[in-house]
């Protein structure tokens, strides 16, 4: 028999991960439930995770080609390589932010490691993320070449899984943080909506990040602002995805601005990317630490 202890063992990251591992079966069930329930009452089911980004790409390709005169070959591939990671980032975090509140009746009555709930949300969104990439590669490596289009296979593709893992860590950290915060301040939901709407245009989703570097006079004067911008993990990862799977194109192909004429594509900055990865690790750790700090207050929120 174990000796009596006067207090619960302290919550450490290690003890909590161990506990989560004990409940891995439940985590699997939660993920399966998320995936099942989402398209439960729809006729097309899983296809709905692919249609919205495709429509987005169609609309944006049409708009940007005709309004801004984007001339880049395979523009939709550049666009999609931004939209896929962006969608995982924004939907993953926004879905997870509501997850604890949605399952509140359950955690009030039954013990389970509470991080399993937002984690299940992130994982199910991660499945859609990977599915999006699968469609992407099939489209541009298999189908498009039949019509004399498509993208070449670059050796840097080996770094692709690493960026996938990094982005998953980023989304997990943010998701745990906002899921815990949202239990106490339901303003989180509205803040997130606003922030993500805005960030969609500030982050290099619809355009390559070089555009920021060349077109902003502020950045031209103070180049460190661009470094700061690229230290932001989501900007860094979208940029990394593009660099690792697509050939660099000079910025003038995306924008007719005279400032960009004849400018070369910026080389990939490994140092800044490394910095963004470190920040991601910190976010993942911090998000989980905050969740652990808060998780026992969920059911007795003052």
């Amino acid at each position: 028999m174990t000796p009596l202890t006067d207090t619960d063992p302290p919550i450490t990251m290690r003890s909590e991960l161990k506990e989560l591992w004990k409940f891995r079966e439940l985590l699997k069930m939660l993920v399966a439930r998320e995936l099942k329930v989402r398209y439960k009452n729809s006729a097309l089911g899983f296809i709905w995770s692919i249609i919205p980004p495709l429509m987005q790409v169609l609309v944006f390709t049409f708009l940007l080609r005709n309004l801004l005169g984007v001339a880049a070959k395979n523009f939709s591939a550049y666009l999609l390589s931004g939209i896929i990671p962006w969608t995982f980032f924004s939907t993953g975090i926004q879905d997870a932010s509501q997850s604890v509140v949605i399952n509140y009746t359950m955690i009030r009555k039954i013990y389970l490691p509470r991080e399993a709930i937002p984690l299940a949300n992130v994982i199910s969104n991660g499945v859609h993320f990977l599915l999006g990439w699968a469609v992407y590669f099939v489209a541009f490596l298999v189908i498009a070449p039949l019509f004399h289009g498509g993208i070449p296979i670059l050796p840097t593709l080996v770094f692709f899984p690493f960026v996938v893992v990094m982005e998953a860590l980023l989304v997990t950290g943010c998701a745990l943080f906002v899921a815990a915060l949202n239990v106490f301040y339901e303003d989180v939901k509205f803040i997130l909506q606003t922030v993500f709407n805005l960030a969609f245009f500030i982050m290099p989703v619809l355009y390559p990040s070089d555009q920021i570097y060349y077109t902003s006079s502020l950045v031209q004067k103070h180049p460190w602002i661009y470094t700061l911008y690229m230290l932001n993990p989501i900007a860094a990862f979208i940029n990394a995805f593009r660099h690792f799977i697509l050939q660099p194109i000079g910025p003038s192909a995306f924008n007719q601005s005279p400032r960009l004429l004849g400018k070369p594509a910026l080389p990939f900055d490994w140092t800044t990317f490394g910095g963004a990865c470190l920040i991601t690790l910190f976010i993942a750790w911090g998000g989980y630490a905050y969740f652990n700090y808060r998780k026992w207050q969920f059911v007795e929120r003052p």
Binding site: K22, F23, E25, L26, K28, M29, L30, R33, K36, V37, K40, N41, T105, M106, R108, K109, I110, L112
Partner: peptide
């Protein structure tokens, strides 16, 4: 408390079972 209304009884049995370990 551990049930999800959009799942069938059979699916809920597996799920609730996992909740209870």
């Amino acid at each position: 408390a551990g049930f999800h209304l959009d799942l069938t009884g059979a699916e809920n049995i597996l799920f609730y079972g996992a909740v209870l370990g």
